[in-house]
Design a binder for these strands. Structure first.
Length: 737
DNA sequence: AGTATAGGTTTTTTT
DNA sequence: AACCTATACT
């Protein structure tokens, strides 16, 4: 080789290096370029975590000469996976198709499809989502003659998922002498058997099976260990026991693993995530290098200071000192709303003026603790004609009408899918009642066969009434017929076929006036989604899968976000959990009330309370420039009026970072300010709901309701110290504040 | 068998 | 307020 070519290659090489690292700070650069094999990056919020991951991958490919083929990148959400793939493609200007990027669940699914036999699964196995699982459990309990009141299905589900997250199968459980435990275990066993027989796999099972697949099949394990020379993990603090065990198997020997995480952003403890994995990592990969990213590029000084101060109240942190070079910016604005409607009104007013000043919709987010809170904001935004998009909540593929259609499709590919059978056996109603279905269930249980097989048996033996028999026979006919007709059709035609031939369209169109149309529209949308379904992204290892099966898997694993409106410029509404990893110029953090955020269930548990606090930290750090926090003095929750106290997290924000906002007069003053003036509040009409008042005995409070008139007029006040009181206005001697 | 009504229950967060 | 279940009615 001539010295000139060497030189040319070197120059090209150097250019690539420069391009990759020139935009990084020292710590980021170190993380991207380190020669260490095992790397733990502790990345604070907004410190360029994704950037480091993406650049690390680019570094491996462009500089170290690694093939895309040998990289595995794992994320938690489909959104994150999609974004990472996109950013790598942007950076490298090549398709990243060959690279395995996906969620733990998605990748596990892929492995199981490729090695169904070794994983002891039927080729036609179907993934069920949380609600499918719950239905299955309810049915199971009925079958076992267990009282739902004594064995709440949700609790059973919680138990089963909890065990699976820990990698514990029914056969590994030790029940001891506790009768309750023994029974839970029995249910778990029966559940496993039922899933096995029906070819159904729940979310936890995907991970557990994928782990067992590698553990029990040395050849499979060796193949993937060979193949994935570099494993990268995003949001490492959210991995559960099984996920981590899976990663360890995969990286055994080579120990080439690059994980990025932040213990302060661990918010999935409730579904089995183990922050401790960060510590385990340090033990299991002895030659690891730790790199901290502590410079925040996202938020203003005040916002960051507030976030740091809040999370500092937690114990057992690894400790990070997030700092920013940005200016303090505007203080965080605190709004004390009269009730939840006032809160929504305030937020939307602010959004209005943001838009008036030329702000973009996309830069605005309303973040809340629970999905139920979205309604108020939706209504207000709707009347203000501001486009918005709600993440989460009931997702497209979770809607009843969609699930019905999917259940038919599932029956077409897998006759023994009991969950789907139950769902559609009498939907639309075809004269098969509870009694008949019960009989079939009985036979299925006795013979240990699927409901479908049991049904055929019943019809054959003619042990049912003629009417029921006929109805069942025509149902069986329908499914078989669909299967035949569908054979040579395109996917979307199959879906269309099902929607039309099953009578679902008619059935749903007859539902209560307003809902019916929407459901029909959704069914059409399903056909459309099938038409747009992207087969080109067919992943290797999944080639054997029919289009239909791929579509069904997609529906379970990616229940949600039709990416159609991604391009539309609109205000974003989402829970704090789904906001993780995102950033917005203007953020409203709403509903900061004890019992709501922190949630009721976490109040008496220090561990969960800390998780809530981390959630708050996540929320605050979503904001780039402006952050509004708000709470309501009174809130209608679960159909009941409640008068919550402001969240403790508000008190944890340093007062110098906050300014309280009054909507009416636009007067703002520090939170800690003492009252400046007070005038007696005499006649009626002089005050309004939400008005701040002070009482000689009870102190400060807010007016919640009024009643009566004149002499008889009474007001309900929520006092900061004394709680809620009704007072006669004529005698109360209230002062406005 | 299918539908309507009443009454009781419920809610964290997601793959 | 919304959802599910149990019961009664057609």
């Amino acid at each position: 080789m001539s010295s000139e070519t060497t030189l040319a290659t070197n120059v090209a090489h150097n250019n690539a290096v420069t391009a990759l690292i020139s935009t990084l700070n020292d710590a980021q650069c170190q993380a991207v370029t380190t020669p260490a094999h095992s790397v733990l990056v502790l990345a604070g919020a907004g410190s360029g975590k994704t950037r480091v991951l993406v650049h690390r991958i680019a570094w491996q490919i462009q500089v170290m000469g690694t093939s895309m083929h040998s990289i595995l990148a794992v994320t938690f959400t489909n959104k994150a996976a999609k974004e990472m793939r996109g950013r790598i493609e942007d950076l490298l200007q090549v398709s990243a198709r060959a690279m395995w990027i996906g969620t733990f669940h998605g990748l596990a699914h892929r492995l199981l499809r490729s090695h169904a036999k070794q994983a002891n699964l039927p080729d036609t196995f179907q993934v069920m989502d949380t609600s499918d699982q719950l239905r299955l459990i309810k049915r199971l309990l009925a079958g076992l003659n267990l009282d739902e009141d004594k064995w709440p299905p949700r609790q059973v589900q919680w138990y089963i998922n909890g065990q699976k997250d820990e990698g514990i199968r029914a056969k590994h459980c030790v029940a001891g002498y506790d009768l309750y435990q023994q029974n839970q275990l029995k249910i778990y066993q029966a559940y496993e058997a039922l899933c096995e027989r029906s070819g159904l796999v729940d979310f936890g099972e995907l991970l557990l099976r994928a782990h067992e697949l590698l553990r029990d099949n040395p050849d499979v394990l060796a193949f993937y260990q060979q193949r994935f020379r570099h494993v990268l993990v995003d949001e490492f603090q959210d991995t559960n026991t099984v996920q981590y065990a899976w990663l360890r198997l995969l990286t055994q020997g080579r120990d080439d693993i690059f994980v990025v995480g932040d213990d302060d952003q661990s918010i999935y403890g409730w579904r089995g995530a183990k922050v401790e994995n960060i510590f385990s990592f340090q033990k299991h990969y002895p030659d690891h290098q730790i790199i901290k990213l502590e410079q925040n590029y996202r938020s203003t000084g005040f916002i960051l200071k507030a976030a740091n101060a809040v999370v500092a109240n937690n114990e057992g942190r690894m400790g990070k000192a997030l700092w920013t070079a940005s200016a303090d910016g505007d203080p965080i604005a605190l709004y004390a709303a009269f009730n939840e409607q006032d809160e929504a009104y305030f937020v939307v007013e602010r959004i209005r003026s943001w838009l008036k000043d030329g702000g973009k919709h996309n830069d605005v987010a309303i973040l809340y603790r629970s999905n139920a809170q979205s309604r108020q904001f939706e209504e207000r935004l709707m009347t203000a004609a501001i486009p918005y998009r709600v993440y989460g909540g009931l997702r497209f593929f979770e809607r009843a009408e969609i699930k019905n259609a999917l259940a038919y499709l599932r029956m077409v590919t897998n006759r023994h899918d009991d969950a789907s059978f139950e769902r559609i056996i009498n939907t639309p109603t075809r004269g098969i009642g509870a009694k008949t279905v019960d009989d079939i269930r009985q036979v299925a249980r006795d013979q240990g066969i699927s409901l479908w097989a049991a049904m055929l048996l019943c019809v054959e033996q003619g042990q049912l009434s003629a009417r029921a028999s006929n109805a069942l026979a025509s149902f069986a006919q329908l499914i078989k017929h669909l299967d035949q007709l569908a054979e040579d059709l395109e996917l979307f035609e199959k879906v269309q076929l099902v929607v039309e031939k099953t009578g679902l369209l008619d059935f749903h169109s007859k539902e209560k006036a307003d809902k019916g149309d929407e459901k029909v529209e959704n069914l059409h949308e399903l056909v459309n989604a099938a038409r747009l379904f992207d087969f080109d992204s067919t992943l290797e290892g999944m080639e054997n899968l029919s289009e239909l099966d791929m579509f069904l898997a997609y529906a379970s694993l990616e229940a949600g976000d039709m990416q159609a409106d991604d391009f539309e410029d609109c205000v974003q509404l989402m829970t704090l959990h789904s906001a993780k990893g995102l950033e917005f110029k203007l953020v409203f953090l709403v509903g900061l009330e004890e019992g709501l955020f922190p949630s009721q269930q976490s109040l008496d548990d220090a561990g969960r309370l800390q998780e809530e606090r981390r959630l708050c930290y996540v929320g605050i750090t979503r904001a780039m420039q402006y952050l509004y926090v708000s709470y309501a003095e009174s809130r209608r929750l679960y159909g009941r009026e409640s008068y919550p106290r402001p969240s403790r997290f508000l008190r944890e924000i340093p007062s110098e970072c906050v300014q309280e906002v009054r909507l009416r007069a636009e007067v703002s003053r520090p939170v800690t300010a003492v009252k400046t003036y007070s005038a007696p509040l005499q006649a009626q009409g002089q005050y309004c709901l939400g008005q701040r008042v002070s009482h000689i005995k009870f102190g400060e409070g807010v007016i919640l309701q009024t009643e009566g008139a004149g002499e008889q007029e009474r007001v309900q006040i929520n006092f900061k110290q004394a709680g809620i009181k009704w007072l006669m206005l004529a005698y109360a001697k209230l002062n406005a504040m």
